[in-house]
């Protein structure tokens, strides 16, 4: 177990700057997400930490050791790949034991640790199977067991859950978190799924075009996005600049930086048929365009003066008997208004 620190990493592939002066700290024992759209450099950053890619400049520290010139074989990391990369010619036990065999821990020690790892991922009875005999979720567990069995200093996960269907993915999120907590290993994972990043991690680093846009705890990043990209990427955000019309009263939070943009997340807006009377709220009127029922939750799209506003709320909190085309009131608390600096 060790803390990881990435300082001013830059990496170019030809004319493309895949990583541009990226800095992020990963404290010991935490669970960290690198989040970004495809091509943002998040996988490049993970592979640079792993040692498959050497950065052009900058430093990487694992524990007390600077490793930017150390190849992956000597970095003592555990890595789990997107498609799991299990060796198809070996049994589950041999897959897990591969790293132990390389380290020459001895037959009895090897057997004991394979057994422990199998227990940890709840696959005790499956050691003799071949990977192709396992389900997707089981393969994922084997890949995880294989990555941690050597007690690496860091666990790196490349889109670990993306190959699973949704129900299994939620199960595995909890499972992954449980195992990570149990062994207390510093874990960095790459994902393009913002919900996954918010659910799992202690800290999220958001990348775009090779730059680290924002890094911080999920709630902080979600509630105080540094720019519109981050606001829109982590969930959804209604931009309030063009809201106008009769009854439009957009209140500015006290802490808004100069030249900033106001936005509000869909789940913080309340729909009502008459003007709400409370203080300390922002209001505006809008016409209901569409209402989409999805079980417990419902999504409404409303239009104010050419701007679409999205509202997500519990279906029962939406006034009954409203129809498409109705003029409605929207309101949200001032403290839920996002104030975004820059563009």
């Amino acid at each position: 177990m060790a803390e990881v620190s990435v300082q001013n990493i830059t990496k170019s592939f030809g004319s493309l700057k895949a990583l541009n002066d990226v800095t992020m700290d990963f404290p010991d024992g935490g669970f960290f997400a690198l989040l970004g759209p495809s091509g943002s450099g998040k996988t490049t950053l993970l592979r640079t930490i792993a040692g498959f890619i050497f950065a052009d400049s900058g430093s990487i520290r694992i524990g007390d050791e600077f490793v930017e010139n150390t190849p992956v074989e000597k970095r003592d990391i555990g890595m789990m790949f997107q498609n799991y990369a299990l060796f198809p010619n070996m049994t589950v036990a041999d897959n897990i034991g591969f790293g132990l065999r390389v380290r020459k821990v001895g037959a009895t020690e090897e057997k004991r640790r394979i057994g422990e790892a199998l227990e940890l991922v709840q696959l005790g009875q499956h050691g003799d199977r071949k990977p192709h005999q396992l389900s997707g979720g089981q393969r994922q567990r084997v890949a995880l067991a294989r990555a941690i069995v050597t007690n690496p200093r860091v666990l790196l996960l490349d889109e670990p859950l993306s190959a699973l269907d949704k129900a299994l993915r939620v199960d595995m999120q909890f499972e992954l978190k449980r195992i990570q907590r149990e062994i207390g290993i510093t874990t960095v994972f790459v994902t393009h799924d913002q919900e996954e990043a918010l659910t799992l991690s202690d800290k999220i680093g958001i990348l775009r075009d090779g730059k680290m846009i924002q890094a911080g705890p999920p709630r902080e990043v979600y509630n105080n996005p540094v720019d519109l990209f981050t606001a829109a990427f982590l969930g959804e955000a209604n931009i309030l600049s063009d809201i106008s019309g009769d009854g439009a009263d957009i209140r500015t939070p006290a802490n808004l930086p100069a030249g900033g943009t106001l936005a509000v997340r869909p789940e913080n807006i309340t729909i009502s048929t008459s003007k709400p009377g409370e203080d300390a709220i922002s209001t505006c009127q809008a016409v209901l365009e569409r209402r989409v029922f999805a079980g417990a939750m419902a999504t409404c799209i409303l239009r104010n003066n050419g701007t679409d506003i999205k509202v997500i709320s519990r279906d029962q909190d939406i006034p009954p008997n409203i129809a498409e085309g109705d003029q409605l009131w929207l309101s949200w608390p001032v403290e839920k208004t996002l104030s975004i600096s820059g563009s």
Binding site: F81, N83, A85, F87, F98, G99, A147, T150
Partner: peptide, 27 residues
Amino acid sequence: IDDNLIDAARSMSANKLTILWRIILPL
């Protein structure tokens, strides 16, 4: 042979000979 298999072996500190002998040759 999936290149990720080779990367996976490298991440477990396997040298080139081990990778050849235990992964590339058998597959």
